[in-house]
């Protein structure tokens, strides 16, 4: 029985990976946006110094935000792509198989997280080549843990959306009305500490703890909260998201 469930998780993971490797256009499409941000904003704002952060160049500040953004978009898309399976019928095949819904969710989450992490690492390597310093080995390990947690949370969020939506029509709406504002307020692109109102709002934004945590661990500067403090919060967000995601997936009927 356990072996079956492990096989099911593996199948779900393997399927995502095969699709990812075979369709390179998706990888490129997913990378284009963060890379555009990184290169264009990075060079445009290259000489800008934020107040209070005079000793940090823009790209150092910016890179963790862009890594978060890349992982976030990619994983959310994996979660939402359950909708494709619904439309193309493959979901029915999975749902009548003698495996638990939980294994399906786990397999899918791991697959999506793996893909998102590959993309995150590509951005990370490019940022390092562009001059972003890495604080320390332990900092890098902590940063990787943050990246994994961000990926899993976003897949969970995508699954919640997928169970509420019936087609892709409302996807751009959610991106523009929910995800982009949260990302802007998360300090991914600019510091939020200078403005008290922004700072208060940011503290309510789950993405803030992800970006701030990644920044604190990776660059080791310009973060507001200590990385471990952020880690605890992000871990809790991750648990809640994946629990809600699998709950919504379980409840959705065909």
């Amino acid at each position: 029985m356990i072996q079956n469930e492990m096989q099911a998780i593996y199948v779900m993971w393997l399927r995502q990976m095969k699709r990812f490797i075979r369709f390179k256009s998706r990888l490129i499409a997913m990378l284009v946006q963060p890379l555009l941000f990184l290169f264009i904003f990075g060079s445009g704002f290259g000489g800008v110094r934020f107040p209070g952060l005079e000793d940090i160049s823009f790209i150092h500040f910016f890179a963790p935000g862009i890594i978060t953004m890349a992982i976030l978009f990619s994983s959310m898309f994996t979660g939402i792509s359950v909708l494709w399976d619904k439309q193309f019928g493959f979901l029915q095949e999975v749902l009548v198989a003698p495996i638990s819904r939980f294994s399906i969710v786990i397999g899918r989450t791991l697959g999506g997280a793996t893909i998102a992490l590959i993309q995150g690492f590509i951005i990370l390597i490019i940022s390092v080549l562009l001059g972003t310093p890495i604080s320390s080995v332990s900092g890098l390990i902590l940063a990787i843990i943050f990246m994994i947690l961000i990926a899993i949370s976003a897949v969970g969020f995508g699954l919640i959306l997928a169970s509420k939506m019936n087609d892709f029509q409302s996807f751009p709406l959610i991106m523009n009305l929910v995800i982009m504002p949260l990302l802007f307020l998360s300090s991914a692109f600019f510091p939020v500490v200078e403005n008290p109102t922004l700072k208060t709002i940011a503290f309510l934004d789950p993405l803030f703890y992800m970006v701030d945590g990644l920044r604190g661990s990776l660059v080791g500067a310009a973060n507001i909260n200590p990385p471990l403090y952020n880690l605890v919060i992000v871990f809790c967000i991750c648990i809640v998201m994946i629990a809600l995601g699998s709950y919504s997936f379980n409840r959705s009927e065909i």
Binding site: R15, K18, R19, R22, F88, G89, F90, V96
Partner: peptide, 14 residues
């Protein structure tokens, strides 16, 4: 049970 649904339930990219 085995099931063959009315709409195809295959992964067309495999």
């Amino acid at each position: 049970i085995g099931v063959v649904f009315q709409e195809p339930a295959l992964d067309i990219e495999l």
